[in-house]
Structures are given as structure tokens and as C-alpha cells.
């Protein structure tokens, strides 16, 4: 991450000088730092709401019931969360919410799942194998219905926007499987 950070910034400055747009680049850079804070503050309400609801499910014992159902397939992907019931159900909720295109609900579940994974992590600054796998499948963005894209296409009066659903589903499934595959292969090389 340190190298990516340094590399991206230096390359960008060099390209900006080469393209004579250093002033625009600096302006965009400062605007982005402001945008980051706006996004985080925008998350407060929705995070608070969903974490509140999830807490009710957790305290009432509903989470334990959910995690019992999905334990077997989940443990194949995340072998080290056998005794971590909260992580199991939050990962399941995150993946189902993403699959349904409810990314607003998926993010709080995902963050909660990360916290549950972090609770059994020995070195709190370094990601565990399960954390990396979970992040990789989330960045693959598996969803059954690409709701936002469909909305944009219909708003522009496309003929039959549903034609993109099947190809999108095939592509996103391939990306999901390869994220899983790469995470499992690469974890052997990054200690």
C-alpha cells in the first residue's frame, strides 16, 4: 500500500506536468480530500441505522440461527471463523445484500464483519487471510441485478435495457470466482 500510494502520486504529478495541467490536478486533489470527508459524513446516518438493526438481530439470537444455516459453505471460503458466529452471519448478510443490489445496506454489514474478523486477529495492523479474501470478493462487486446501471439506461430510453442483465451476471460471477481464486493463491506468498 505504501508503494502504491507514493507511486500513484508521483506518476500523477509527472503526467500532469507533461500534459500541462498541473493547476487542474492540484485543484482536483484538494477537492477530493474535501469529498472524502463528505462521503464519510454521509455514511453516518445509514451506518447508524443498519448497525442499530443488526445489533437487535445479534442480541435477540437471530444471528446465531442465520449463521447455523450458512456455516458449511462459508467455512470452505473462510476456514478460520469456525467459532466466530457474528463474523459468519455478518459476512452472509453482506454478500446477500450485495447480491440484491442493496449496497447501502451491504456496507455496514461488511464493516461489521471486518470488525468481527479483526476481533480474532493477533496483529491488529496486518490483515488476516480471511480479511483479504472477504475484501477481494467485495471489490469484485457480485450482484444479481445491476440496479443503478439499469436505472441510468432506462432514463436514457434504451431499447430493452434488461438485455444487459444476463451478460453482467456472467461477468460479475467470473470476477467473483477469480477474486476468490486469486485471494486463496496469493495468501501463500504474502506472510
Amino acid at each position: 500500500m505504501n508503494y502504491i500510494f507514493i507511486f500513484l502520486i508521483i506518476i500523477s504529478f509527472l503526467c500532469a506536468i507533461f500534459n500541462h495541467r498541473l493547476d487542474i490536478a492540484i485543484d482536483e486533489m484538494l477537492k477530493a480530500s474535501q469529498k472524502a470527508v463528505e462521503i464519510a459524513f454521509g455514511l453516518i446516518g445509514i451506518m447508524g441505522f443498519w448497525l442499530g438493526i443488526v445489533k437487535i438481530a445479534e442480541k435477540s439470537g437471530l444471528m446465531d440461527i442465520i449463521s447455523k444455516f450458512i456455516q458449511k459453505p462459508l467455512l470452505l471460503i473462510f476456514p478460520d471463523i469456525k467459532d466466530n458466529k457474528e463474523a459468519q452471519s455478518n459476512i452472509a448478510l453482506n454478500i446477500s445484500a450485495n447480491a440484491l443490489g442493496l449496497s447501502n445496506a451491504a456496507t455496514p454489514f461488511g464493516i461489521k464483519a471486518m470488525e468481527d474478523l479483526q476481533s480474532q486477529n493477533e496483529n491488529k495492523k496486518v490483515a488476516t487471510n480471511s480479511m483479504c479474501t472477504f475484501l477481494a470478493i467485495n471489490t469484485a462487486g457480485f450482484q444479481i441485478v445491476p440496479a443503478v446501471v439499469l436505472a441510468i439506461l432506462s432514463a436514457n430510453n434504451m431499447d430493452n435495457p434488461t438485455q444487459i442483465i444476463l451478460p453482467t451476471l456472467i461477468v460479475t460471477s467470473l470476477a467473483f470466482v477469480s477474486a476468490l481464486f486469486f485471494a486463496k493463491i496469493l495468501e501463500r506468498f504474502y506472510k
Partner: peptide
């Protein structure tokens, strides 16, 4: 969760 080393 404060992870700084992203590993792979």
C-alpha cells in the same frame, strides 16, 4: 478496523 498492511 485500522488495518494498515493490506497484504495481497
Amino acid at each position: 478496523v485500522g488495518i494498515k498492511k493490506f497484504r495481497h
